[in-house]
Nucleic acid binder design. Structure first.
Length: 660
DNA sequence: TTAGGTTTGG
């Protein structure tokens, strides 16, 4: 906490502080000294009213008197507080309180009247911590109606101070860090785990940094606020850590964020703007910092081998783990431990890849856009610890998926085919994780430009640019001896029977393919019907007591009184042979299109195939004369709603074939 | 406190 009250013995408190910080006397304070591992202690001699500096930041000034050396020449020093910390201190700090300041910086005094050549500067954002030992305990208004009066030497009046402040920090090369110290560091990121929620109360980011000394340091950084952790997006980024604690673990030195820790991150590429990424509003940045970063960038360019594999969807070579920069188009909860992210990067994945079947209602995102981008988006399944972050991502934002796994997988019942799947496995090994890239990030701007240049119409019309204009025809699987019957004859006949017809497809429903896939009950031969008579789970007991129980879905379903439903295509064709038109139903699992209905919703290649077939059989805006003739078997049958009988027709023993 | 790079499921 940036502001803490010291309760109990001050001596005990000071002993605990000495474990990590060193006390420094006022006379040793000067601009340029290393204050990272130091603290000062003094008594509040005076305080000024809370005010604001030019940019609107709150400002609070106190004069600290060195407690143990009241006669010292440098016995007092001005302490300037900024931001939230200033506001908090202004409400609790009073004359006579003992104050301990850690994480301060030094600035040159603006007036000789200050009594010291420099002043202390502290702020929440800079990671300062102020400990206060109250002179007297305050009674609250709630506990008593007596308003507590404390002696206060508040100086009235406003004052203008010079901004920005320029304190001086000393940075330790990585080969010089020592255990038990608190140091300031610069380094290039060699490896990192994007912030993730750890088992404790905080978010954690593990970052390995290297520098020109060729030493490396693994740092574990914690913060309750994800955004307060360094915003690293790729290896090679440059970080500046202030007040990082060095300790030994398993014979190796490591860095750990301690009280007052603060970080800045910079793009590590030579020539890019030197703009610090930070959630802090207040931080120091000097010409020297700029020089350090530029030097490190040059070193990174020829010394840091980036182990991360970065790929576009068009260039992946499965199986592989890679980092993908993309835009989130849709998202959906799958189950408690997995989550779907539909993403695109403007390029087309050249492999047959897995599409998950998600109910439209469960999919968050613009359904029109999702449909338009259907041939360019891939489905990424993220697991376990990544679910929480995935859930929080806003559709439309740009994200980077780290160590995304692309691998082929065959469905259990189809060993001959395999689909490419994208998984972000659980855990954080190898830096697996997700970051949301901010607007304005160079990679985001580049990707945006590229996505805007993608011509979706072109993509749709040139999905297979070199593919010949294949024709489709129907194959009759049996009964070839049947004579062709005119539709007018069929329309005049009322007896249920099979026919061979030759007609053109004038219209079909539904237009949207996904609406044609239904669940069908093979027992009663009807759609979404309840033939199941579910039994208690105990009904499985007889099966379990068998010598070699057969734990197959059909056996289990039977024992539980369930009739498994199956996926079928249900379509209505309006056929025309010039003698009349007839509405004929198609209800088919896999034989008509030679594509299983159970797979089509999850496989975009199958969807494209069917769309292509239907577009050939019944292209929109084409005259009946130009449509292809189709040979089909149909049969007539009666359906009844209990009162009236109606004659219907459906396709059977007919298959669509491609004329290659 | 947490993690402590890593040898990578669904």
């Amino acid at each position: 906490m940036p502001l803490e009250e010291i309760r109990g013995s001050f001596r005990v408190f000071e002993n605990s502080l000495r474990g990590s910080l060193q006390k420094v006397g006022f006379e040793h304070l000067q601009v340029g000294c290393d204050c990272a591992s130091k603290y000062v202690q003094g008594t509040v001699a005076a305080s000024y009213p809370l005010s604001k500096v030019g940019n609107g930041t709150s400002f609070f000034k106190i004069i600290l008197q060195e407690s143990e050396n009241p006669c010292s020449k440098a016995g007092a020093i001005n302490t300037y507080m900024f931001g939230k910390l200033a506001e908090e201190c202004a409400s609790v700090v009073h004359q006579g309180d003992i104050v301990v300041v850690a994480g301060f910086s030094m600035a040159k005094s603006t007036s000789e009247a200050d009594g010291h050549c420099c002043r202390l500067e502290v702020s929440d954002e800079a990671g300062s911590t102020i400990y206060i030992k109250m002179k007297r305990k305050i009674k609250t208004r709630e506990s008593t109606h007596q308003v507590c009066t404390r002696s206060s030497n508040t100086i009235t009046g406003s004052e203008t101070i010079a901004m920005p402040v320029t304190p001086s920090y000393t940075y330790t090369p990585l080969n010089r860090v020592k255990g038990g110290t608190i140091v300031n560091l610069y380094g290039a990121v060699k490896f990192f785990k994007p912030p993730y929620k750890c088992k404790g109360t905080d978010y954690c980011s593990v970052i390995t940094i290297v520098d020109q000394s060729d030493a490396k340091l693994i740092c574990s950084l914690f913060n309750v606020n994800r955004d307060a952790l360094p915003q690293i997006y790729k290896n090679g980024d440059i970080v500046r850590f202030h007040r990082i604690k060095i300790k030994e673990f398993s014979g190796q030195l490591q860095g750990i964020s301690s009280s007052g820790f603060a970080a800045l991150t910079f793009d590590g590429a030579v020539g890019t703007p030197v703009v610090p990424r930070t959630s802090s509003k207040l931080f120091t940045f000097t010409d020297e910092d700029r020089k350090t970063i530029e030097d490190l960038r040059i070193w990174v360019a020829s010394n840091l081998l980036n182990s991360a594999v970065v790929a576009k969807l068009s260039g992946i070579q499965p199986p592989m783990y890679f980092d993908l920069t993309c835009q989130l188009v849709g998202k959906a909860k799958l189950d408690g431990s997995s989550y779907l992210l539909k993403v695109w990067d403007g390029t087309k994945c050249p492999f047959t890849y897995w599409k998950l079947h998600v109910r439209e209602d469960d999919l968050e995102g613009d359904s029109v856009l999702i449909h338009r981008l259907r041939n360019l988006t891939v489905d990424v399944v993220v697991y376990d610890n990544h679910v929480q972050l995935a859930k929080s991502l806003k559709v439309g934002t740009f994200i980077r998926l780290y160590s995304l796994h692309a691998k082929f997988q065959s469905p259990e019942d189809e060993p001959d085919v395999s689909y490419l799947q994208f998984h972000l496995h659980g855990g954080t090994t190898y830096g697996r994780g997700i970051t949301s890239l901010p607007e304005g990030h160079a990679d985001v701007e580049d990707l945006k430009k590229f996505l805007n240049s993608v011509d979706l119409m072109e993509d749709e019309s040139s999905e297979s640019p070199s593919e010949p204009e294949n024709a489709y025809f129907t194959l009759l699987r049996d009964h070839q001896h049947f004579e062709v019957t005119a539709l007018s004859t069929i329309l005049n006949s009322r007896s249920p029977q099979p026919y061979r017809i030759r007609a053109k497809l004038r219209q079909f429903e539904p237009e949207k393919l996904h609406q044609s896939v239904k669940l069908h009950c093979p027992q009663c031969n009807l759609l979404c019907k309840h033939c199941s008579n579910p039994k208690a789970i105990a009904s499985l007991s007889p099966l379990a007591t068998q010598k070699d129980p057969l734990w197959e879905p059909t056996t289990i379903a039977q024992a539980l009184g369930l009739v498994p439903l199956e996926y079928v295509f249900v379509m209505k064709f309006m056929l025309d042979d010039g003698t009349g038109t007839l509405n004929v139903y198609l209800m088919d699992c896999k034989d008509f299109f030679q594509i299983p209905a159970s797979e089509v919703l999850t496989n975009n290649i199958f969807q494209e195939n069917i769309e292509r077939i239907m577009n050939k059989l019944c292209p929109s805006g084409t005259n009946l004369d130009d449509l292809p003739w189709l040979d089909c078997f149909i049969k007539s049958y009666y359906v009844t709603d209990g009162r009236e009988q109606q004659i219907c027709y459906r396709v059977f023993d007919t298959t669509i074939a491609e004329d290659v």
